[in-house]
Nucleic acid binder design. Structure first.
Length: 777
DNA sequence: ACTTTCTTTCTTTTT
DNA sequence: GAAAGAAAGT
């Protein structure tokens, strides 16, 4: 074991500087004995600091060499942050250290052991969009009805199974629908294998299987990594947890940091339960809570604490601060979304007038659709702003086209890449020809590239020309440096020529040129991601690891790191983003807008307890982003999907302590009534009899209800007639139990018709018209 | 084979 | 209200 340590590393006492200024729990976490431990780190409690300081401390005290340490994060940004902070703490070379994302580290291992993992050396990574198009292609080829098996749903099924660690042979299928899904899963994996491509969850599952089935490789890594540190542990899925356990199986210490209250990614497979399980299984005596918050003023923390207490099954944690109460949270009720935006503008003006920086002001919203009104208002009032989210560099169509050519040069059997650019720019290859080609490929169970020579006629000719174009590009760039390869390809493929002719093509050309720069930068940076190359070289030297080509490394990089969201640092601009995107960030002043039932919490989430609780955690994350000032706002009406909606204020508003709030608009009866109405739980949705008209929430077969009976979104202006009475939006009605209310929307028709009624203090109810005892007033 | 028009469907998102 | 996909027109 000791021979793993470099000679230069002499065990020494940690100088005080590393551990200085840590509070007692932080100190305890950083210096905890080398066994499994769980750190429950509340928002703003110094989580990243603890993580990086522990790594530095372990290295500095000689307990581990940089080489024997692994740190896993979810995002590349977090991984980079960790690297910079470690370099700042210790004068060590972080190159080659195993610090990265789950996917990045798995990719590294699979590249090193591609043969043992059953992959071609040139395997390519499919991003979500590539995966979807691969699935569409599969469904088409197999003649599967994509109405009954929507590609997105198939994709979700496959990914969910993989994230549970299940191959198609291991998924239980209890009905014919699921049997078909499982079948498709199997066919999809076979297709990927044949094409030499790997999707995101596959990176993890393959790596997990490699370690499970191959004892020498497993033991090598188990022996090598003495300390494994995990960030954002609440976001891990089951497979990631198993992967960690496996790697730590040789006696390594697993140091997990997370906050169950900030788990907001259950919808994509994260399993908060991993935290409780980890505590029970390994760390029951070594759980440390970081509860002192260094970020927010008292009222803000009180709001967050009170709010999150409404959730069940928490691991338990209460943030406190010694910073004093600070200012109260300001609440504003707007008449319309536009007016809400206008109010935000005015508040921002006055904040900036007080001398605050615009970049220290964030406007948060639940869903991206809400940003437009805000952007419009900001734009017309001339306030600089940046919107986060949206298209990222490597996801732009012109960039993906260029990457597809590069992928084909690496691996011509990548059918997804083939289909993407075979007729782009247009070269007279139409749907008919491609169908023929696909049929031949399916018949011979070979790639589209291999089938080219057998396609008859003019179409076949054009295909052959395209194939030779790819071959030629590969040949002509053989010995060129990476950025020149890219430069050659964007010209030779005709992409530049094509966009020159397009009206809006200038920006796309610019992006293609930028891709050349990105390639140059990538090659320059530690010599094409030497982080990888270096790490590979130290891995199982005896197995003769072959380094991937610069192009292959660049393509991995492009798939695994989709690049920045246009927002550039530096300029002083107001920050706009979804609450999800704000996780991990902090601002002096934060606006949480659109606090309305149906929006936040989102209507698709309120039916299930777990969904509602995730929304509440989301609200918790939003609130805890603010340092000094927090503004909450909602609007009576809002344009959504091209229609005006009438919303109630969010239940989350009433879950914040009254004494921390300062209403900027008069609190109307409605808002007051909310307080006295008490428990929102089931009551908010009315009792069973009123909803009895349409199916129970079908837990196991989520799509049962969506056939045609009612269309949940279409609001009829003309009104709906049920049992001889007509109901219209805006009409006043009376209900024996809820009292008087106003119809806010109508859905469906006939006996299935539903109505949303705003009963003021009682809230907005959705009722089945045929069942509810509603009378026009 | 390519272009235009209609229809549909809308959370959240990293890798 | 916008983007993507399908159907229909050139």
């Amino acid at each position: 074991m000791l021979d793993c340590l470099p000679h230069s590393l002499i065990p020494s006492i940690a100088p005080m500087s590393l551990l200085d200024n840590l509070n007692p729990p932080q100190h305890a976490a950083v210096t905890i004995e080398p066994r499994h431990a769980l750190v429950l780190a509340g928002a703003g409690s110094g989580k990243t600091r603890v993580l990086t300081t522990r790594m530095a401390w372990l290295i500095q005290t000689g307990q581990v060499s940089p080489h024997g340490l692994m740190a896993v994060t979810f995002t590349n940004k977090a991984a980079r942050e960790m690297l910079t902070r470690i370099s700042a703490l210790l004068p060590i070379n972080t190159r080659g250290m195993w610090i990265g994302t789950f996917h990045g580290l798995c990719n590294r291992m699979l590249r090193a052991h591609y043969r043992d993992a059953g992959l071609p050396q040139t395997f390519q990574i499919l991003d979500t969009a590539d995966q979807l198009s691969a699935i569409k292609r599969l469904l088409k080829g197999a003649g599967v009805d994509d109405e009954k098996y929507p590609p997105r749903q198939v994709q979700h099924f496959i990914n969910a199974a993989k994230e549970e660690g299940l191959r198609h042979t291991e998924v239980e299928a209890y009905d014919s629908f699921n049997r078909q899904m499982v079948e498709l899963y199997g066919m999809y994996d076979a297709q990927c294998q044949r094409e030499g491509v790997v999707d995101f969850p596959e990176l993890l599952l393959r790596c997990y299987e490699l370690l499970t089935h191959n004892a020498p490789i497993r033991e090598h890594y188990q022996h090598r990594f003495r300390h494994i540190l995990v960030d954002e542990f609440q976001d891990t899925n089951r497979l990631q947890y198993r992967w960690l356990k496996l790697l730590a199986g040789g006696g390594a210490a697993l140091f997990a940091v997370g906050d169950d209250d900030q788990s907001i990614y259950a919808f994509r497979g994260a399993n908060v339960g991993n935290m409780a399980e980890f505590e029970r299984e390994y760390a029951h005596e070594r759980v440390i809570r970081l509860e002192q918050n260094y970020r927010s003023h008292g009222h803000i923390l009180d709001a967050a604490n009170t709010l999150i207490r409404n959730n069940s099954g928490r691991l338990g944690k209460n943030l406190w601060t010694d910073q004093g109460h600070g200012e109260p949270i300001r609440v504003y009720e707007a008449l319309s979304d536009a007016q809400e935006a206008q109010w935000v503008i005015e508040e921002i003006r006055s904040l900036v007038g007080e001398g605050r920086l615009r970049r220290e002001i964030a406007i948060l919203y639940r869903s991206n659709a809400q940003s437009r009104v805000l952007e419009h208002a900001l734009f017309s009032s001339g306030i600089p702003y940046k919107v986060y989210g949206g298209l990222r560099f490597f996801e732009r169509q012109e960039v993906k086209h260029a990457l597809a050519y590069l992928r084909l040069m690496e691996n011509p059997h990548d059918d997804t890449a083939w289909m993407r650019v075979v007729n782009f720019p247009a070269r007279g290859i139409g749907a008919r020809t491609l169908e023929q080609q696909a049929d031949i490929a399916r018949l011979h169970n070979c790639s589209l590239y291999s089938a080219v020579s057998q396609v008859p006629g003019r179409g076949g000719n054009n295909l052959a020309q395209f194939a030779s174009l790819v071959d030629r590009m590969r040949f002509e760039t053989q010995n060129l440096p990476l950025h020149e390869i890219v430069d050659h390809v964007i010209e030779a493929s005709g992409l530049i020529q094509h966009y020159l002719q397009e009206k809006e093509g200038a920006e796309r050309i610019e992006n293609l040129r930028e891709l050349v720069n990105a390639a140059a930068a990538f090659a320059a940076e530690d010599g094409y991601g030497l982080a990888d190359a270096g790490a590979l070289a130290q891995t199982l030297p005896e197995s003769g690891v072959e380094l991937p080509s610069p192009l292959a490394a660049f393509l991995s990089h492009a798939a695994l790191e989709a690049g920045d969201n246009q927002a550039s640092e530096g300029q002083d601009a107001v920050q706009l983003m979804t609450v999800h995107a704000a996780k991990g960030l902090e601002f002096e002043a934060v606006f949480i807008t659109g606090l309305e039932e149906g929006l936040f919490p989102h209507e698709n989430s309120v039916l299930e307890q777990s969904g509602l609780e995730e929304e509440r955690r989301l609200m918790y994350v939003a609130v805890t982003r603010a340092r000094e000032r927090l503004y909450l706002s909602f609007s009576q009406t809002r344009m959504l999907h091209g229609q005006t909606r009438y919303n109630m204020q969010s239940r989350f508003l009433s879950e914040v302590p009254e004494e921390s709030l300062k209403w900027l608009t008069p609190r109307n009866g409605r808002a007051k009534a909310v307080d006295t109405a008490g428990g929102w739980g089931h009551a908010a949705w009315g009792d069973e009899s009123e909803r009895g008209g349409f199916s129970r929430p079908a837990k196991d077969a989520p799509y049962v209800g969506s056939s045609e009976g009612y269309s949940s979104r279409r609001t009829s202006d003309a009104g709906v007639e049920v049992n001889g009475r007509t109901f219209k939006v805006g009409q006043s009605v009376a209900h024996p139990k809820f009292g008087e209310g106003v119809i806010v929307s109508l859905m469906g028709s006939g006996q299935d018709a539903q109505v949303q009624v705003n009963f003021g203090g009682v809230g907005t109810k959705t009722l089945a018209l045929a069942m509810a005892k509603l009378d026009p007033v």
